[in-house]
Design a protein around this nucleic acid. Structure first.
Length: 490
RNA sequence: GGUUCCUUGGCCGAGUGGCUAGGCAACGGUCUGCAAAACCGCAUACAGCAGUUCGAAUCUGCUAGGAACCUCCA
């Protein structure tokens, strides 16, 4: 299998040709959500970006194992010394078991992801389910000498590590500066340096999420789960690791350090990072309090939203930007996406009612390759969409009788549209009506009404024809007359 | 303060040296009983200044504005 698929590697800061380690198998790991709150628009971005990657890799013929973790141990809220993890805190506030909180938000996350047509990953490991593995991982780092125990906690020794390896290579941070600016630590701290990070944290008495370990009853550090679970399920070396750009430092930098310290080599070939979604030019984030949850988008219930936006509108909106660009949220932009997507899906539907002719006056041949080239250029979904829109014009021209299409070209166009719209971009027709026997009957009934209207039109009985159209419109249907008939949708 | 990055027409958003992005909106027109849909036409955009070049939105420098990371964050 040989493909020219280029992806931007954060580690080298350039686009590189994708070559899997164990062709045709591909391992990809993506940082998933910390489940202590509802998912917001920002969470949709990596989910959709890496869903696009997952789908495209499969289209290219790779056998992909996609691992997306669930962080349910909770990252530390503030400085480690006064640490209380987010899930424990939320649990206390809501008087619930931590795992009850986790389950609640995880269910809601899954529901939102399903609505966005994000395929479930192959494995969705929980950090809390891999405490033993994480402890073993810490032991390896201790054994290699890059960690130290202090007051029941274990910390990673960044300075020592940086003498042999390159701490900061992913984020472009200068280790000397990092160490320089963090040199002053009061003697009370357990950490030798503040640049050091926790691998194991001793739990305070009030800390309810805790597990036994050789060092103390406590919990694993924030970065460890990804190193541990990534290598557990994908091997000591795997192809792709993804996540949001805000995770580059310190999260992914620490991951590289941990894995390298434990195993003696790096584990990840290609690091991919999606950019942020902004709101008024500023990052949408939990800590900034300027986020809009996915449910709020779906229902339109938020002060900043002028209307509800369907899951597919959100998905299309995100796919209209390349994943490494920021996307600025605004009602105008979302409305433009909604309209545009409707036009695209309308044309896709129309494809099934086109009549083929002997010859084509439109050009269909280049489309498949153009779309593939765009996808292969670091997942350039906006270019794919622009190519599809070019074909929308052709489809409409045929529909209007201003152009013709051969049956061969029509089949090709249908095939390419299905492939890119449904299989790769993961868009589905939200206004499509199912195909079971009851909807068949319902469709026939609507068709019958509109046939009667056509008859009335022929007789210039505008009162009857307008009545039928108006009543149906009032019930939520959209009726469009065509050259020699009608189209309807709901 | 340090590191990195961004600034494209009314809005969103591709493009990284010469050749059309695309979508939405607006405007004009065609079609139509009306409406809708569709189609056609339409913006000589690239933050500012200077430089490199036969030629720059695209390279270099400076200026202005903005962002991300440096602390949990997708």
């Amino acid at each position: 299998m040989e493909h020219k698929f280029f992806i931007y590697n954060t580690l080298t800061r350039k686009k590189e040709k994708f070559v899997p380690i164990h062709n045709p198998y591909v391992g990809m790991y993506v940082c998933g959500p910390t489940v202590y709150g509802d998912g917001h628009l920002g969470h949709a971005r990596p989910a959709i970006t890496f869903d696009l990657l997952f789908r495209y890799l499969q289209h290219l013929g790779y056998k992909v194992r996609y691992v997306r973790n669930i962080t349910d141990v909770g990252h530390l809220e503030h400085d480690a010394d006064e640490g209380e993890d987010k899930i424990a805190k939320k649990a206390r506030l809501e008087s619930k078991e931590p795992m009850e909180v986790v389950q609640y938000y995880l269910n809601r996350y899954h529901k939102a992801m399903e609505a966005l047509n994000v395929l479930p990953p192959s494995i969705e490991p929980h950090a809390s389910g891999h405490i033993i593995e994480q402890i073993e991982f810490i032991k390896k780092i201790l054994k290699s000498g890059y960690a130290y125990e202090s007051e029941g906690s274990v910390y990673f020794d960044v300075e020592k590590y940086s003498k042999r390896y390159n701490y900061g290579e992913l984020s472009g941070r200068n280790i000397d500066e990092l160490l320089e600016t963090t040199r002053v630590l009061d003697g009370q701290s357990e950490k030798h340096r503040s640049a050091d990070f926790a691998l194991w944290k001793k739990a305070q008495p009030e800390h309810i999420m805790r597990w036994p370990s050789p060092w103390s009853d406590g919990f694993p550090g924030w970065h460890l789960e990804c190193s541990t679970m990534g290598t557990k399920y994908l091997g000591e070396e795997f192809d792709i690791h993804g996540g949001g750009m805000d995770l580059i430092f310190p999260h992914h930098e620490c991951e590289i350090a941990q894995s390298t310290a434990a195993l003696g080599h790096q584990t990840v070939r290609y690091w991919m990072h999606n950019n942020m979604i902004t709101i008024n030019g500023q990052k949408m984030g939990k800590s900034l309090g300027n986020f809009i949850t996915l449910d709020e988008f779906f229902t339109g219930k938020h002060d900043l939203l002028k209307q509800a936006y369907s899951p597919m509108t959100i998905r299309f909106f995100i796919l209209q930007a390349q994943y490494r660009s920021t996307v600025d949220f605004s009602n105008e932009a979302l409305q433009a996406s909604e309209k545009g997507m409707q036009r695209l899906m309308e044309a896709y539907r129309r494809l099934n009612s086109l009549t083929a002719s002997e010859q084509s006056t439109i050009d269909v041949k280049g489309l498949r390759k153009s779309c593939e080239d765009a996808m292969s250029d670091d997942l350039n979904s906006p270019i794919v969409i622009s190519h599809l829109f070019d074909s929308v014009k052709s489809i409409n021209a045929v529909k209007d009788g201003k152009a013709t299409i051969s049956s061969e070209d029509l089949e090709e166009l249908k095939s390419v549209f299905k492939l890119f719209i449904e299989d790769i971009l993961g868009l589905y027709d939200e206004s499509a009506i199912g195909n079971n026997s009851s909807t068949e009957a319902y469709k026939k009934a609507v068709d019958l009404l509109l046939d009667i209207r056509m008859q009335a039109k022929k007789n210039k009985d505008w009162a009857t024809s307008d009545k039928i159209r108006n009543e149906l419109t009032a019930s939520g249907f959209t009726i469009n007359d065509t050259k020699d008939g009608f189209e309807w949708s709901i």
